[in-house]
Amino acid sequence: MSASSTHSRILEVEGLSASYGHVEALRPVNLHVEEGELIAVLGPNGAGKSTLMNAIMGLVPTQGRVTFRGRDVPRRAPAAAAALGIVLVPEGRGIFAPMTVAENLELGAYLLSDKREYARRYERVLSLFPRLKERLTQTAGSLSGGEQQMLAVGRALMSEPKILLLDEPSLGLAPRVIEEILQKLGELNRQGLSIILVEQKAPLVLKLARRAYLLSVGSIAAEIDPRTIKSHDELAHYYLG
């Protein structure tokens, strides 16, 4: 591990934009994540949060630059981004529903061939989400929404990511389950994992994130300390200008 401060930024996004056909869903965006930091990306529905995550991974055609620890992240090559250690848990989870829970986890470690390392990660993920352990041979599609989200996070962790991107992990889940998942994310972050957490609702990330970017109609409207936000009204102020 290099202790130099020149590499203190794990991820740097510069002038990143993306369009669907002629519609520019993401205007040139700049943001960065420090090593070990958990940042939030907030914004209302349709603001371009998912587009931003997909653009970082290279799932959609983009312009601009993404660097990971000073190295260029190739564009239009999500598998290569994953190989660098950037892993996205996409909106809607993207689990392989007809396959078993165990197979889903196995595919998360697709790039790993060391058996012992595999066993170590497998144990680690199952101890983080013990509920998956009871369901290893069930198909992923038969899990509850919360369990599916845990599986999606667990699958991402199987690749031992350096930075984890989560696109609205709370979507469609009961408050108690959301609480549980966010608590696990906090735990992972305290263990040193850098995280970008996308949410619509600011209150969810208040306890976790030191910094948040507010996204509004495809642009970053502000960078804030979410702890300074006291109410929804105050947040709305940023969107309305």
Partner: peptide, 16 residues
Amino acid sequence: RACSINRDAAALQGIP
């Protein structure tokens, strides 16, 4: 099989 179920999600796992 993963590619046939969800190509994007497969790519996100590093599957070529």
